[in-house]
Lab assay of single mutants.
Amino acid sequence: EETVVIALYDYQTNDPQELALRRNEEYCLLDSSEIHWWRVQDRNGHEGYVPSSYLVEKS
């Protein structure tokens, strides 16, 4: 079962390993094994790492 997370803030990045976030957008959580950086996928299928503190699990 996939976990959906919501971005609390915008996040901009130039790092190809990371993914930009848009506030209030939903993302699919792929990997939360790292404490500070979670791997997520956006609705267009793009994947990357984002700061975990910018996300909240959708209830």
Rank of each mutant, 00 (worst) to 15 (best):
E1T: 06
E2Q: 09
E2I: 13
T3Q: 11
V4M: 09
V4S: 07
I6G: 02
I6E: 06
A7N: 00
A7S: 07
A7K: 00
L8R: 13
L8P: 01
L8D: 03
D10C: 03
D10G: 03
D10L: 00
Y11I: 03
Y11H: 10
Y11C: 02
Q12A: 14
Q12P: 12
Q12L: 12
Q12T: 13
T13V: 11
T13L: 04
T13E: 10
N14C: 13
P16Y: 04
P16I: 10
Q17Y: 15
Q17M: 10
Q17F: 08
Q17W: 09
Q17R: 15
Q17V: 08
Q17P: 03
L19I: 12
A20Y: 05
A20R: 11
L21S: 01
L21E: 00
R22V: 15
R22G: 07
R23I: 13
R23C: 11
R23K: 15
N24P: 01
E25G: 07
E25M: 08
E25Q: 09
E26C: 06
E26R: 06
E26T: 10
Y27G: 00
Y27L: 04
Y27Q: 00
L29N: 00
L29Q: 00
L29V: 11
L29S: 02
L30C: 05
D31M: 02
D31W: 02
S32F: 06
S33N: 08
S33I: 02
E34K: 15
E34M: 11
E34Y: 09
I35M: 14
I35K: 15
I35E: 14
I35C: 14
H36C: 05
H36G: 13
W37F: 15
W38R: 04
R39D: 02
R39G: 03
R39P: 00
V40L: 08
Q41G: 11
Q41M: 09
Q41N: 09
D42H: 04
N44R: 11
N44E: 15
N44W: 05
G45W: 02
G45L: 05
G45Y: 04
H46N: 14
E47K: 09
Y49C: 14
Y49M: 13
Y49W: 14
V50L: 01
S52A: 15
S52Q: 08
S52V: 06
S52W: 03
S53G: 11
S53N: 11
Y54W: 07
Y54K: 06
Y54A: 11
Y54L: 09
L55I: 11
L55S: 01
L55M: 09
L55R: 02
L55T: 02
L55P: 00
V56M: 15
V56I: 12
E57V: 09
E57T: 08
E57P: 06
E57D: 05
E57S: 12
K58Y: 05
S59Y: 04
S59P: 15
S59I: 10
